[in-house]
Design a protein around this nucleic acid. Structure first.
Lengths: 220, 220
DNA sequence: TCGTCTATTGAACATGCGATCAACAGGTGT
DNA sequence: ACACCTGTTGATCGCATGTTCAATAGACGA
């Protein structure tokens, strides 16, 4: 495939402008085709510029991929969290949040997340960025759980654990959806995931007394 | 890099032998370096033959990757399920099963799974195989849950839902571990994941008013 | 208007990938 | 011992990847 441009030299931009335009193109490309599609030539073609210029602005694809990943998922997280209705029944709002996270419309971001976990095993810069963004999700969810518990909308429990469990569940289900392994409708999944997380986050609901050896060690 | 062989022609084998040796090499390679490492040349070097021979026995890398994936994860599943102690307290056994699945020793298989979900988005043969192996896990877990419920070791609940939730949680946590995002010790995670799944699978444990639609037949 | 600065290019290099095909060679049966 | 059969090779094609660097061209200040 040839470059989108007609062979003419691209418009001269300030370094900041060009950097921004490159990032824009890369973000769009990753959204459409995943992180694997982020090649020097593909981004160059998208932006309408020579591959050499991409390499000039972004020496080292590893950190470039990490940056693009971070920008995409951070923007999405802020959007989702911002849309979280802070008013009304928080349990209802939580359910809608989970439904949103499981929505098929977000398959593009899901692919990016799953590719990031896989690539992160061999790309330290990306792995670091993935951890950072996951920390962002973890603390955002933890905050929501703590708020809901304080408001009495859900049973009080360990908000951090609930956040970890919910993240794992949502990420696992989304990963499964990439190969179209969706056993039942997602609204039902969301409801069950939420109650699973909320119930387990309340230690009192767990019958520990009946299991003598198991429940004793509780390191934290 | 050069082929492992000293340039001498490889020993002549029967088609079945050679096919087996190629699969063996590919399986070992994938276990060590993931599915992305499965290139014609890498497998050829590993097996000690020419790339052309690999291409001859396995025309089309897509189905080859799918086969290797299937063999690896099917073997692992059978091993894990077989090690599941059918005697004694089934809840205890379930906990050990989850601990096994979350064990860091299985990071190699985890990488393969996560790569499979990512690659499956663009490799239909692989995606089909992934679905097949996930069905295997789903039914194995469902069977275990049903058995445990019948034995009275856990609260009776919908075994299929419990299996789905557990699979999602375990897969999500393992994906997270690929980038070393492990908030707490895995034994604790396993315990909480198990109680989350078991509690939610027992309808009686869920606040009744919040699930009127539950008793209605679920759409496929 | 001219000259300087630098954003941008074009071309090339080294490496890797999957795939193809005529030619070779080692085992097998006669 | 010979010839057939076929597993195996070597060479090569076409394409894609990241990276480098001298040369170019467009914008801006003097």
């Amino acid at each position: 495939m040839k470059t989108t441009s007609t062979g003419a030299t691209a418009r001269r931009m300030s370094p900041e402008e060009r950097d921004h335009s490159i990032l824009e193109g890369a973000i769009g490309l990753a959204r459409e085709s995943g992180l694997e599609a982020l090649t020097v030539r593909a981004v160059a073609s998208r932006v309408g510029v020579t591959p050499a210029l991409i390499a000039h602005y972004r020496p080292g694809m590893d950190t470039f991929v990490a940056d693009v990943f971070g920008l995409i998922v951070a923007a999405e997280r802020e959007e989702v969290i911002a849309a979280f209705g802070a008013t009304g029944d928080l349990r209802e709002a939580l359910l809608r949040l989970i439904e949103t996270l499981l929505d098929a419309d977000r398959d593009d971001v899901t692919l990016i997340w799953v590719q990031a976990w896989a690539l992160g095993a061999r790309n330290d810069a990306l792995a670091a960025r993935v951890r950072q963004e996951m920390d962002g999700w973890q603390s955002a969810l933890e905050q929501i759980f703590a708020r809901a518990a304080a408001a009495g909308d859900i049973a009080a429990g360990r908000a951090d654990t609930a956040a970890w469990l919910l993240l794992a569940m949502v990420d696992g289900m989304n990963a499964h959806s990439l190969v179209k392994w969706a056993p039942r409708d997602r609204a039902d999944l969301a409801r069950r995931a939420l109650s699973a997380v909320l119930d387990s986050a309340a230690p009192a609901a767990i019958p520990v007394d009946s299991r003598p050896a198991d429940s004793r060690p509780e390191p934290t």
